[in-house]
């Protein structure tokens, strides 16, 4: 047993040493290959490039530009897949009723106060990740996942009843999700509708003006790059991911009493 422990400790320290060696070497020699494929080069070149207004998306974050502008339809379908997974949970648990008006009972006051201090920080950080998705690394999905940490914290510290007391119901969350998905579709077909009214050519999921169509979403808000539809997509995606993950957490988490019952059933089986 002791021999195994020594072996594990030795290999772990070797891992840390080799990672730090690589980080140190990176300042002196080139480790990653300097060759980028020509497609990747063109993404890097055009994603924020005001001199080529037909190809650019005015997004400083190239990942956001690719995800929501250059392959927007793909990302939209990914979002609907997340919706479908929540619907699958609902189908599995049909006939399930939420017990709403139980007394909230959580952990001790110390833990509750610490959570109360941290929750506003998490909210601010998640909103910053989502609404600055076109400027800094991040985006709607990452912001929504960060915001869903709050509901898991509340379930763990303040208990599930507190979430119901605050007005969360899984049906309401699914309705918000559906509305946000409709909002995504509306943003996507807005250039199409404007083109139809003005009788010019336009595309679905169009962001900036193209060679044969002059319709363009707003690229700047005062002096901050808004990147057109990418900002709206990120905001809607934030709400969709937050409500989706919160619904899954609320449906899948068990109360203390229910957990004890589950253990009793398992003991009877064994």
């Amino acid at each position: 047993m002791i021999k195994r422990d020594v072996l594990v400790a030795f290999s772990l320290s070797l891992l840390v040493l080799s990672i730090s060696l690589i980080i140190w070497l990176e300042g002196y020699i080139r480790i990653a290959t300097p060759i980028i494929s020509s497609l990747g080069e063109s993404y890097l070149y055009y994603s924020y490039n005001p001199w080529y207004s037909n190809y650019t998306s005015f997004s400083l974050n190239v990942v956001s530009a690719i995800i929501w502008d250059y392959r927007g339809f793909d990302t939209f379908l990914e979002t609907t897949v997340l919706m479908a997974s929540i619907i699958a949970i609902y189908t599995l648990l049909r006939g399930f009723e939420e017990k709403v008006f139980l007394q909230p009972k959580g952990l001790s006051t110390i833990t509750k106060t610490a959570t109360k201090i941290v929750i506003p920080l998490i909210i601010a950080y998640a909103l910053a990740i989502a609404t600055h998705g076109q400027l800094t690394p991040g985006g709607g999905f990452q912001g929504g996942a960060t915001l869903a940490v709050i509901s898991s914290l509340i379930i763990a510290v303040y208990s599930l009843e507190f979430l119901y007391y605050m007005g969360y119901r899984s049906k309401r969350l699914v309705v918000i999700r559906g509305l946000c998905l409709i909002g995504l579709i509306i943003v996507a077909i807005t250039p199409l509708l404007i083109g139809f009214i003005l009788n010019t050519k336009s595309y679905i999921f169009q962001n900036m003006s193209k060679e044969d169509s002059f319709i363009s979403m707003p690229s700047f808000l005062f002096d901050a790059p808004l990147a057109g539809s990418i900002f709206f997509y990120n905001v809607f995606e934030l709400l969709i991911v937050f409500t989706g993950l919160t619904t899954a957490l609320m449906l899948l988490s068990l109360r203390d009493v229910e957990l004890k019952k589950a253990f009793e059933v398992r003991e009877v089986y064994e």
Binding site: L107, S108, I110, T111, T113, A114, T115, I117, V118, L121, V157
Partner: peptide
């Protein structure tokens, strides 16, 4: 943040 969270976590 660590000064707030680490003691409360070990406390709980």
């Amino acid at each position: 943040i660590i000064l707030i969270l680490a003691p409360s976590g070990s406390h709980s």
